[in-house]
Amino acid sequence: MSTPTLPASKAVRAGSTTPARPRGAFRANVRLILRILAANPLTLVGFILVVIVSVTAFLIVAVPAVSTLLIGRAVSILPYPALDTAAFPANQAPSFAHLLGTDQAGTDVLSNVMAALPTDLGIGFSVAGVSLIIGGLLGLVAGFWDTPGTLSSVASIGILRITDIFLSFPTLVLALAITAAWGRGEVQSELAVIVTWWPFYVRLTRGEVLSIKVQPYVIAARAAGVSETTILFRHVVRNLLEPLAVYFSLDVGTVIVTYSTISYVGVGVPPSVPEWGNLMYQYQDLLLTQPWTVLSVTAAIFITVLAFSLLGDGLRDILDPRSRRIMATTTVASHSGEGT
């Protein structure tokens, strides 16, 4: 750097016309996501499985309801009514009439397993969802307003200590206690899981907020005169969504496994409701004599949990603009305008 060469900064070339946002940006995004999915076969498998599982669950619930409304008669996509005791000869091996055979009570195993799908999926989403909302909001408060010596920091410490108390509850024991107090039912048992579930979201959210709020771009926004509320939504929440979405997707599977365990022990949904944990309990003695019964239920849980786990792993790549570049370098033309 010897002689200062002052570039004529009046050389503002053609700066008056604003380049419009490229048309079809939405379609380009969809194409980009498809490309990322194609580059990650496991994510693609997870994505397809989640779509299949979700659509099936939706149809199982929606088709009878809609048909009742339209033609006054419930049409089900299940092969046979679920848990319809003694409808068929008991303990039949899989056949074309009963693809997964029948159980000791003479009901169609496939119908039972399918009928349980909406229940379990609904439990997975609602427990994880309610935990996400409660824990996410509390974590946001505890993380963003924790300047020592202020009133809000007292609230923040309070939230964290209460979270610690709830973290120490064993899910199963709490579910037993709640069932003992309020009786056995879907709402009660879901509540038992939620009570032990939300603290993890507080911890996760708070940690993310603590790291985001000291990022230079947050300080830069403050230096620009952006208000704290705007910073909270524009920078903090926006950067929170990706880790939370990833964790949520993985969590739906975990909730299903945990809830099945609770039902298996006998404190979940009542025995009359088709649910995978319930079915496991009913079929557990058949493992050596009629393995198709208990294995079908296991496979259903396995596939559902796997689907959400695979999707969760790939979700990070789809949601983060930085990794999109790595996945689809060819689509991004880089003209950063180097050189003065």
Partner: peptide, 28 residues
């Protein structure tokens, strides 16, 4: 429009309005 007018004064092209920061080098 205002950003597009501003970018040339720092040596950037107005076409980059819709790009993300990771698409630039440190100098950019």
């Amino acid at each position: 429009r205002r950003v597009a007018e501003l970018l040339p004064t720092v040596g950037l092209m107005p076409e980059i309005l819709d790009q993300y920061p990771h698409e630039f080098s440190g100098g950019g």
